[in-house]
Design a protein around this nucleic acid. Structure first.
Length: 511
RNA sequence: GGUCCAUUCGUCUAUCGGUUAGGACGCAAGAUUUUCAUUCUUGAAAGAGGAGUUCGACUCUCCUAUGGACUACCA
């Protein structure tokens, strides 16, 4: 029997949530839902320096847009509240002290400046300074100073930190749900800061372990950048005596740049013209803005589908998944181990697939605001119908206006190429004939018009291409669009005749 | 530099010792077509290199190379 699955997404509110972060949240969510567990949102704001106003709201809104539901945490509350680490700050000192008393940690009084100097010194002779077993007893720490002096310094208000006392030359053996068995020698690790007196706040490592334990987290699913600190976290669980209830770990591969080396960054999006954030963002400090998938016209379902398959696959050839299908199929075993290059083209392809699957009703709702922007007032029925006819050619809702404008607005100018090709010779005269044919039709349905006009063309032995393209010029104004009878049926008899009359009167034939 | 992780078509990936190494994006060609598209068909395109283990390795082991992450009183 295993305990209840409880996972957490624990971002830091230092800016807009990156799409890699969204994927981490998504995998956590899918895992929780798949296993009937809980999804927790914890905000890790233990770095007062890097806090960015609005970032937390951005994170919550992003998850909401993606359909990632939070069961417990910031914004929804729960039995382990508060879920914002800055509001939990009193609880961490106790745990830091517990570690010192047990001999797993110690006080250190070095200043940031002193440490910088030591690093520079080491660098000068081609070495790397490591705060570990080799120096901790030589530096001003509770390991080198007398008990009285330590107490006096603390009482006096000296700045101190608590550091983990990393054991020397011990092999830590770890298991990762994605990577398998990993071993590390502790001598290669350093004494990480766990708690800072300067702001009375823990660092990530302490807060993370304490909160995961207190919140009864069963699985930690996070980015690969955390793998190097996994030994520390293992040791921390051991130091607290919590190893029996320690969560299982899964480290996700990173999202890489479309081209070149390194992980995906904001700059790549700016440079190559794709969003790296789910939502539009304006920096409250610099005023800088960043594109968002939502504002750029992507459907949340398409974005989520694309993200899910970037580093995970179900082992079948299915590519389109609803959230529920993702939940039904998800497993950590099928997450790949290597980083995945993000491909903007594939994101567009996913969006187009979702576009093609939208019903006329859904399209109408999305399209109406754009129609209104362009000064078109029409029924939902017609908006949806026009969009439905053309959706196969669209990737974004925003493409629809260009694709359908002639359904709503008569052309006033004519595409040059199409004019040169068809507005010459007999064509204007034939269009005049066609006008009379159309005028005689009562049932202007697509099928009937096609039958009548087709018969007329056959009888007169006119060229189909010449007639239809001339008509297209008159009705659409360009050499594009769906089948002509889609257009005639949509705009109706009166409008057809009006447009034909207009071109006959206003466009001079090419000699 | 050190530590850890990774490595199948250009990209995302399937394969869990025996396959003509499959699919998708993108690309190219062809077909369809009243235009532009769509759609359909087809094609080019891959196991980083070297040693092992084995009757047999893309698959297991080791080495090398390459890529990535980490190396803060940031997360």
């Amino acid at each position: 029997m295993s305990r209840e699955v409880r996972v957490r997404f624990a971002p830091s509110p230092t800016g807009p949530l990156h799409m890699g972060g969204v994927r981490t949240a998504l995998y956590n969510y899918l895992f929780a839902r798949r296993n009937g567990g809980k999804m927790i949102l914890r905000i890790e704001d233990t770095d007062s320096q890097r806090f960015v106003p609005g970032a937390e709201e951005y994170i919550i809104e992003s998850l909401k847009w993606c359909g990632i539901e939070i069961d417990e945490g910031v914004g929804v509350g729960g039995p382990h509240a508060p879920y914002r680490q800055s509001e939990r700050k009193e609880i961490y000192l106790k745990y830091a002290k517990q570690l010192v008393e047990a001999g797993w940690a110690y006080y250190a009084f070095d200043t940031a400046e002193e440490l910088d100097a030591l690093r520079k010194e080491a660098e000068a002779v081609g070495q790397t300074f490591a705060y570990n077993y080799s120096v901790r007893e030589k530096l001003p720490t509770s390991l080198s100073l007398s008990k009285e002096e330590v107490e006096e310094r603390i009482a006096r208000g000296d700045i101190w930190v608590v550091r983990f006392k990393m054991p020397e030359n011990e092999i830590v053996e770890m298991d990762d749900l994605i990577r398998g068995h990993v071993k590390v020698n502790t001598s290669t690790l350093d004494d990480k800061v766990l708690y800072k007196s300067a702001d009375a706040l823990p660092t990530y490592h302490l807060a993370n372990i304490v909160d995961d334990h207190l919140m009864e987290i069963s699985h930690v699913i996070r980015g690969e950048e955390w793998l190097p600190s996994l030994p520390l976290h293992y040791l921390l669980y051991r130091a607290f005596g919590w190893q029996d209830s320690q969560p299982q770990f899964a480290h996700l591969p990173l999202l890489l740049k479309p081209t070149g080396g390194g992980k995906l960054s904001k700059r790549d999006g700016d440079k190559m013209g794709f969003p790296v954030f789910p939502l539009f963002w304006t920096s409250p400090t610099t005023g800088e803005t960043a594109h968002g998938y939502r504002e750029d016209g992507y459907f949340a379902e398409a974005f989520v589908n694309m993200l899910a398959l970037l580093g995970w696959n179900p082992g079948t050839e299915q590519e389109l998944f609803s959230m529920q299908e993702l939940i039904d199929n998800f497993s950590l075993e099928r997450v790949s181990k290597s980083g995945a290059r993000f491909q903007p083209d594939k994101a567009k392809w996913f969006n187009a697939q979702y576009m093609h699957r939208k019903t006329d009703e859904e399209l109408a709702e999305l399209f109406q605001p754009i129609l209104r922007e362009n000064g078109v007032e029409t029924s939902d029925y017609l908006a949806g119908k026009a969009a439905g006819i053309m959706k196969e050619r669209a990737t974004f809702i925003g493409d629809l206006w260009d694709l359908t404008s002639y359904f709503f607005v008569a052309p006033t100018s004519y595409d040059e190429k199409q004019t040169k090709k068809y507005w010459k010779g007999d064509n204007p005269a034939r269009l005049k004939e066609l006008r009379e044919v159309l005028a005689s039709i009562d049932d202007f349905s697509k099928e009937n018009t096609e039958a009548v006009v087709g018969a007329w063309i056959a009888e007169k032995e006119y060229g189909m291409g010449q007639i239809m393209n001339t008509l297209r010029l008159a009705l659409v104004g360009a050499g594009k669009g769906p089948g002509m009878y889609d257009v005639t049926a949509f705009i109706g008899k009166d409008e057809c005749l009006k447009r034909i009359d207009f071109i006959l009167e206003n466009l001079k034939p090419i000699e």
